[in-house]
Deep mutational scan, measured.
Amino acid sequence: RPMNAFMVWARIHRPALAKANPAANNAEISVQLGLEWNKLSEEQKKPYYDEAQKIKE
Rank of each mutant, 00 (worst) to 15 (best):
R1S: 11
R1V: 12
R1L: 12
R1T: 12
R1W: 14
R1N: 11
P2E: 15
P2F: 14
P2M: 14
P2G: 12
M3Q: 07
M3E: 09
M3D: 12
M3S: 10
M3F: 11
M3Y: 11
M3A: 12
N4L: 14
N4H: 08
N4E: 11
N4W: 10
N4G: 07
A5R: 00
A5Y: 01
A5K: 00
A5N: 00
A5Q: 01
A5S: 02
F6Q: 02
F6L: 02
F6R: 01
F6M: 04
F6I: 01
F6C: 06
F6W: 03
M7S: 06
M7Y: 12
M7Q: 13
V8E: 06
V8W: 06
V8N: 05
V8P: 00
V8D: 04
V8I: 15
V8G: 02
V8A: 06
V8H: 06
V8R: 07
V8S: 03
W9T: 01
W9Y: 15
W9F: 15
W9I: 02
W9H: 01
A10K: 03
A10G: 02
A10V: 09
A10M: 07
A10D: 07
A10Q: 05
A10I: 06
A10C: 13
A10N: 02
R11T: 14
R11I: 12
R11Y: 11
R11M: 12
R11W: 09
R11K: 14
R11S: 13
R11H: 12
R11D: 14
R11N: 11
I12D: 08
I12L: 09
I12F: 05
I12S: 06
I12Q: 09
I12N: 05
I12G: 03
I12W: 04
I12T: 08
H13T: 09
H13S: 04
H13K: 06
H13P: 00
H13Q: 09
H13V: 10
H13E: 04
H13A: 11
H13I: 08
H13C: 08
H13N: 08
H13F: 12
R14C: 14
R14T: 04
R14K: 08
R14Y: 14
R14V: 03
R14L: 10
R14D: 01
R14I: 05
R14G: 12
R14W: 14
P15L: 10
P15K: 11
P15I: 11
P15S: 09
P15A: 13
P15Y: 12
P15G: 08
A16W: 08
A16G: 09
A16S: 08
A16H: 11
A16P: 04
L17P: 01
L17N: 01
L17F: 14
L17Q: 03
L17E: 01
A18V: 15
A18T: 10
A18S: 10
A18E: 14
A18C: 10
A18R: 14
A18H: 10
K19A: 13
K19N: 07
K19M: 11
A20H: 05
A20S: 08
A20M: 11
A20Y: 04
A20L: 11
A20R: 09
A20W: 04
A20Q: 08
N21R: 07
N21C: 10
N21A: 04
N21F: 13
N21P: 01
N21D: 05
N21G: 02
P22Q: 04
P22V: 04
P22K: 04
P22W: 03
P22N: 04
P22C: 04
P22I: 03
A23Y: 12
A23I: 07
A23K: 13
A23M: 14
A24M: 15
A24N: 03
A24S: 07
A24Y: 12
N25G: 09
N25T: 15
N25M: 04
N25E: 04
N25L: 06
N26L: 10
N26M: 11
N26Y: 15
N26S: 12
N26D: 15
N26H: 13
N26E: 15
N26V: 12
A27I: 10
A27D: 12
A27N: 10
A27R: 12
A27Y: 15
E28H: 05
E28F: 12
E28A: 08
I29M: 03
I29D: 01
I29G: 01
I29N: 01
I29L: 11
I29K: 01
I29A: 01
I29H: 02
S30G: 08
S30Q: 12
S30N: 14
S30P: 01
S30I: 14
V31P: 00
V31M: 12
V31R: 15
V31Q: 10
V31L: 11
Q32M: 15
Q32H: 05
Q32A: 10
Q32T: 06
Q32C: 09
Q32E: 05
L33K: 00
L33R: 00
L33T: 01
L33W: 01
L33V: 02
L33F: 01
L33Y: 00
L33G: 00
L33E: 01
L33N: 00
G34P: 02
G34V: 15
G34K: 15
G34N: 14
G34T: 15
G34H: 15
L35D: 06
L35E: 06
L35I: 13
L35F: 08
L35M: 10
L35N: 08
E36W: 12
E36V: 08
E36Q: 10
E36R: 08
E36L: 15
W37Q: 00
W37I: 00
W37A: 00
W37V: 00
W37P: 00
W37F: 03
N38F: 07
N38D: 10
N38S: 13
N38P: 01
N38T: 07
K39Q: 07
K39V: 05
K39L: 10
K39C: 06
K39S: 07
K39H: 04
K39F: 04
K39G: 05
L40V: 02
L40Q: 01
L40H: 01
L40I: 03
L40E: 00
L40N: 00
S41P: 05
S41W: 02
S41V: 02
S41Y: 02
S41G: 04
S41N: 08
S41T: 13
S41F: 02
S41L: 04
E42L: 12
E42S: 10
E42W: 15
E42V: 10
E42N: 10
E42A: 12
E42P: 12
E43C: 07
E43T: 08
E43D: 12
E43W: 08
E43F: 07
Q44K: 07
Q44G: 05
Q44I: 04
Q44M: 08
Q44F: 04
Q44E: 13
K45A: 02
K45T: 02
K45S: 01
K45V: 03
K45E: 00
K45H: 01
K45G: 00
K46G: 04
K46W: 05
K46D: 02
K46Q: 11
K46V: 04
K46F: 04
K46A: 08
K46E: 04
K46H: 05
P47D: 03
P47Q: 05
P47E: 05
P47A: 05
P47Y: 08
P47C: 06
P47G: 03
P47I: 06
Y48A: 00
Y48E: 00
Y48T: 00
Y48I: 01
Y48W: 12
Y49Q: 05
Y49H: 07
Y49E: 07
Y49G: 02
Y49R: 10
Y49S: 04
D50M: 13
D50S: 06
D50G: 04
D50E: 13
D50N: 08
E51D: 04
E51M: 15
E51T: 09
A52N: 02
A52S: 05
A52E: 04
A52G: 03
A52I: 07
A52K: 02
Q53N: 11
Q53S: 10
Q53Y: 07
Q53A: 13
Q53K: 13
K54H: 09
K54E: 06
K54G: 06
K54W: 08
K54L: 09
I55V: 08
I55N: 09
I55A: 08
I55R: 07
I55T: 08
I55Q: 10
K56Y: 12
K56I: 12
K56C: 13
K56H: 11
K56G: 08
K56M: 15
E57F: 07
E57Q: 12
E57N: 11
E57S: 11
